[in-house]
Design a protein around this nucleic acid. Structure first.
Lengths: 134, 134
DNA sequence: CTCCGTGCAAATAGTTTGCAACCAA
DNA sequence: TTGGTTGCAAACTATTTGCACGGAG
C-alpha cells in the first residue's frame, strides 16, 4: 500500500490538511505518477472514492495547489477547459486533436533555439510548447 | 484609401460576400496588418463602424475563415477565450500575463530542435510555442 | 427560386463568487 | 477561539445551437 502522508504533503506546501484537500492530494500525488486532470475528472474520482466534494472546492483546491507550486496549469489544451498537471517542472506536451488527450513529452527531448528577447521591460516567465498531433 | 476588395477576397476563399462577412473582411484584412482578435473585440469594432452584427454570426464567420485558411486560431492564450490571428502562417507568440496581450514572434527568430516523434500512428499536425512574459 | 447565411433567443460548458456554517490549529 | 475552508446555489463568461426569415447567386 501507499505510505503517502497527505497531511505532511500539504503541510510542506503550507496548506491545511482538510478532508477535501487530503482526498485530492491522495488522488493526485500518492503514487508519484504524472497526471493531467480536469476539475471534472477529479470531482468524479473523488466521488468514486468516498464522500463527494463540492465542485467549487475542487477548483479552490486545485488553484491553491497551483499557487503553492505543487501543480501546474497547462495552457494550450482545448479551449474552455483547464488542465492541471501533477508534474510541476518545466516540460512540454503532445496534444491529440482527435481525443483531446494531453501527453508529456519526455524532458530533454526538445529544446528551443534562438529564444527571442522579450518585449521592452518584460521578462520571460517561461514557455509552453504544444505539439499538436492527429 | 484602401483598394481592398472584400468580395474578391471572400470569393478567393470560397465564401459568399454577405454584409457581415464583408465588414469583417475589411476590418481584419484591408490593411494587411497582422492582428489578434477576439470575437468580442470584433463585434465591438463592427458596431463602431456601422450596423452591428449578431455575435453568433461573428463566431460563424470567424470559424468559416479559419476553416477556409484565412485565419488561425491561437491556442495558449488566456483560457476561456479564443484568439484569432490574421497571420495564418506558422509562427509563434509572446503572451503577456499581465495584460493578456498576444504578440507575434518574428518568423524564423525561433526554432525547435529535437522535435520528438509523435505517439504511435499519429502525425504531427503542427506546434504552438507560447513564450510567457511578465 | 434555392440554399446558404443571418439574427435572435435560449441553451451549454466551464469556472467563479457570495455567504453562512464548519473545523483544524 | 478564530481565521482559513467548505458547500451550495446563483452568477458569469465565452461559445454554441435551433429555427424562422432573408438575400446572394
Amino acid at each position: 500500500m501507499t505510505d503517502f502522508d497527505a497531511t505532511r504533503f500539504l503541510d510542506a506546501y503550507g496548506l491545511r490538511a482538510t478532508r477535501p484537500r487530503t482526498m485530492i492530494a491522495h488522488i493526485l500525488f500518492a503514487d508519484g505518477r504524472d497526471r493531467h486532470v480536469t476539475a471534472e475528472w477529479l470531482s468524479d474520482e473523488v466521488g468514486r472514492r468516498g464522500e463527494p466534494v463540492a465542485l467549487a472546492t475542487i477548483y479552490n483546491t486545485l488553484h491553491s495547489l497551483v499557487e503553492a507550486g505543487a501543480l501546474r496549469e497547462v495552457r494550450g489544451a482545448a479551449p474552455g477547459t483547464i488542465v492541471f498537471d501533477t508534474n510541476a517542472h518545466p516540460h512540454h506536451h503532445f496534444f491529440d486533436e482527435t481525443t483531446g488527450e494531453l501527453t508529456d513529452i519526455p524532458a530533454g527531448a526538445l529544446s528551443l533555439s534562438g529564444l527571442p528577447e522579450a518585449p521592452a521591460d518584460k521578462t520571460v516567465a517561461g514557455y509552453d510548447i504544444v505539439i499538436r498531433v492527429r
